[in-house]
Design a binder for these strands. Structure first.
Length: 596
RNA sequence: GGUCCCGUAGCUCAGUUGGAUAGAGCAACAGCCUUCUAAGCUGUGGGUCGCGCGUUCGAAUCGCGCCGGGAUCACCA
């Protein structure tokens, strides 16, 4: 890319002019600010110690050297310590002509042998997915696409938390109050049906606790002694003992949950290459811990419980096996890490998990190191922030969760209303219309969530719903649809690509050039998004691209332009923009409609 | 209490490997459809970048100390 060349040539300039060898890292190269003439700017302040001259003189000397030694640079200007370089129109035209028809532009061919294992979603089978899971799923899916675009093989895995006390709670409530209901008999999605029992358990559990507290128990005592929780624990023991009835019910209810999840995943447009079940991996975790104990990298206490001692690393002791020999969350995660490593020998293992588990992953890595696992160094935690509601954090018990399926229904409805109001569904068949509403609704939702830096907490206000104007998914989809319409007309009118050599000589108007420059930046955006594991980089790039194109489209005629070569040029720009919008949207897991 | 994260316009967010007058969208107001889709474009107003000190030629960005918000530190997951 041209950036690399500019950096290297600047180093040469410094060596030639001042006799100093410097690395490209010592040079500040950035895009020139909008108001100033130029494409790239070199900040020369850091070089003054070497040049021993004024900022202006240094910048001018380097500018002269670059102009003479880099054929793409046709002129430059100096403002204080800023050297602004102007690249030739020919350079930008050449880029456009050489790349616009290249389907893989901006993407790298697979260049890493070992795959990346990417875990995301990881639901519990005791309740349906909510808005927080949506963020997780969208991030995970998008990140997979971004990594593929950067030349990685990606294995998407889902670790289902299908065992444990929380699962038993739903089971118990169902046994007590379920009346043999099924998804079929109630017409409810399986995961939602199970969710009602989870809620029911908590309601009654809370009532029992209050009762006990009234009788003089402390809260902690009540929590442990309430009959319901003790019954749930009994179910857990039966499950671990492989009691047939218990295991059967567990299988049945989990089956309902899976059916429900599958439907939600399909609608969200996410998928997995491999599904792990905690019920099948926790035993491997146990054996890893026992090995570690034998090798004396772990410690056992008098009551039989096994721990990792991390005190000399500034952390605490961490329990890995309970005194009764049963496993905890960490045990299970050690097992799945090992399993994944054995299954794929990946170059890295990425976990898309909320930032509330930062400590967990810190400990996980350290314990794996203690167990002598070299792959611990390649575990990465994509730690994303919480989705908050105007009232604060979502809490299932207080009924303030935004359900994933409900939300998607809402989005669809809003998309339908808005589209009909605008009269844009009039000529569509029902299937086509529903298809469009779905694309728009999901596009709005996905873009809304992915445009925020994953690391940050974000706010979701269901009342205001999601806008379809401004910096939104539908805005970008609309830009794409407009381009397709334009290209359709161009095609119908029989416009064909002009002779390349003619185009290469064309002078560019500012809006034309700005748009081409943005297209060029797609390559850097893909790389940056991969490095930072951030779909938001793509989303922000996309908005900039679409916004800029709309300006171009508004100000300059394409098909109505008089100069034939300009028509060809602008069609080329439009086509390339459309292609990159589509590719970028796909990196976010968002579809674009041909008409809207 | 220990550790970690966050604090930018009324609201939601960009910008944070230190660089030029801090940017968008929404909301408000004012314009632009006899010309390629107005889910669009243009313009106006709106800021002690939480506060203070420091490092630097230069700080929203780095360091330290406060203030405010959040997460986490379970024989929960």
């Amino acid at each position: 890319m041209i950036e690399t060349k500019l950096l290297e040539k600047t180093c040469e300039a410094v060596k030639h002019l001042y006799g100093h060898e410097i690395g490209t890292g010592a040079i500040g190269l950035e895009k020139t600010k909008k108001e100033i003439i130029g494409d790239y700017t070199i900040v020369v302040f850091p070089l003054l110690k070497i040049s021993r001259k004024s900022p202006e003189a240094t910048a001018t000397e380097i500018g002269l050297f670059l102009r003479d030694h880099v054929k793409e640079i046709i002129e430059f200007n100096v403002i204080k310590g800023f050297l602004n370089l102007v690249l030739s129109d020919h350079f930008w035209m050449n880029f456009l002509v050489k790349n616009f028809s290249h389907p893989d532009f901006g993407f790298h061919k697979t260049r890493h042998e070992r795959p990346v294992v990417l875990e995301y979603s990881s639901p519990n089978t005791n309740k349906p997915l909510h808005l927080g899971h949506i963020r997780n799923n969208l991030l995970g899916f998008s990140l997979a696409e971004i990594l593929k675009a950067n030349g990685h093989k990606v294995v998407k895995v889902n670790l289902v938390n299908d065992r444990g006390i929380h699962i038993c709670k739903s089971m118990l409530a169902y046994m007590k109050w379920g009346n043999k209901e099924t998804p079929a008999s109630t017409g409810m999605k399986g995961d939602h049906l199970i969710g009602t029992y989870y809620v029911l358990f908590n309601k009654n559990y809370k009532a029992e606790m209050l009762n006990l507290i009234e009788k003089g128990l402390t809260e902690a005592e009540a929590e442990r002694q309430a009959p319901l929780i003790m019954e749930a624990q009994e179910i857990l023991r039966k499950w671990e003992a492989k009691d047939i009835e218990t295991v059967d019910l567990w299988k049945t209810m989990n089956g309902w949950a899976y059916e429900g999840f599958d439907a939600t995943y399909r609608r969200l447009g996410v998928d997995f290459d491999k599904i792990y079940h905690e019920s099948k991996t926790y035993l491997l975790g146990k054996s890893l811990v026992m090995e570690g104990l034998q090798r004396e990298s772990l410690i056992q206490k008098e009551d039989g419980s096994i721990w990792a001692d991390l005190r000399d690393e500034g952390l605490d002791e961490k329990l890995l096996l309970r005194s009764d020999g049963t496993s905890v969350y960490m045990t299970q995660d050690l097992g799945t890490a090992q399993l994944r490593y054995d299954d794929y020998h990946p170059s890295s293992m990425i976990y898309v998990v909320g930032n509330e588990q930062n400590y967990h992953f810190d400990v996980l890595k350290r314990v794996l190191v203690k167990l002598g696992k070299a792959y611990a160094a390649h575990i990465q935690h994509l730690s994303y922030g919480m989705v908050e509601l105007p009232q604060g954090k979502m809490k299932s018990r207080e009924g303030t969760v935004v359900d994933a399926d409900d939300l998607m229904d809402e989005m669809f409805k809003t998309a339908e209303e808005t589209t009909r109001e605008l009269g844009k569904a009039n000529e569509l068949s029902e299937t086509e219309a529903n298809n469009l509403f779905n694309k728009i609704g999901m596009g709005a939702l996905k873009y809304f969530i992915l445009k925020v830096d994953p690391k940050k907490n974000m706010l979701f206000d269901p009342r205001e719903s999601i806008d379809f104007n401004g910096n939104t998914g539908p805005f970008i989809q609309y830009t794409y649809a407009r381009i397709q319409s334009l290209l359709g007309r161009a095609n119908a009118a029989g416009f064909r690509c002009e002779d390349e050599n003619v185009l290469l000589q064309l002078p560019l108007l500012p809006l034309e050039k700005e748009t081409i420059v943005r297209l060029y930046q797609f390559q850097a955006a893909v790389i940056q998004a991969g490095d930072e594991m951030s779909p938001a980089v793509i989303a922000n790039y996309l908005y900039d691209l679409a916004k800029g194109f709309n300006q171009f489209y508004q100000e300059l005629p394409v098909l109505k332009e008089i100069i034939e070569e300009k028509v060809a040029l602008r069609i080329l720009i439009s086509k390339f923009t459309g292609d990159i919008i589509k590719k970028s949207m796909n990196l976010l897991g968002i579809e674009v409609p041909e008409r809207m």
